[in-house]
């Protein structure tokens, strides 16, 4: 059994979450220090896994802090390349493009693809954005995998 006292002394915080890799949904404790993940532990009381974890859930978390992570909104400028910009400008360009497509080609010309990895809150809002925004059902997700 883990003794919580040395962890706290080492400045490590545990956050209960769920593995993000497959549909089994193993409960995990994410161990962090100074805003970085330093390890993953299986949750002994996780209802789907009861303390088990596979190699993906155990080790594949380095991507979270990978230097290639996107950190700023990007927009394509006249030179054809993607350039960093502010949230406000990126969202405005994104919004204008959808409104223009709907105005010029009809509301059925806009389509949304949600993710099978993001939390349900993101999926719900993706479908609501399509339905409340355009009145269509032009929405799908990557249910294949």
């Amino acid at each position: 059994m883990q003794n919580p006292i040395p962890l706290m002394e080492a400045g490590i915080t545990k956050t209960r979450s769920v593995c993000g890799y497959c549909g089994v949904g193993c409960a995990v404790d994410v161990m962090t220090r100074d805003n970085r993940i330093v390890g993953i532990q299986p949750a002994m009381d996780g209802p789907a896994n009861e303390g088990a974890l596979c190699v993906k859930g155990q080790f594949a978390y380095d991507f979270v802090h990978h230097p290639d992570r996107l950190t700023r909104p990007l927009v394509r400028r006249d030179d054809g390349k993607l350039h960093p910009t502010t949230w406000d400008e990126a969202l405005q360009i994104a919004a204008d493009g959808f409104l223009r497509a709907a105005a010029e080609h009809g509301e059925a010309s806009v389509y949304g693809i949600a993710s099978g990895r993001t939390p349900s809150e993101a999926d719900y809002l993706m479908q609501k954005w399509v339905r409340a925004g355009f009145g269509t059902h032009n929405i799908d997700n990557c249910s294949r995998a």
Partner: peptide
């Protein structure tokens, strides 16, 4: 995938 079920559930 981890939340394919949730994506369908969510519409």
């Amino acid at each position: 995938q981890n939340n394919v079920q949730g994506a369908g559930d969510s519409g």
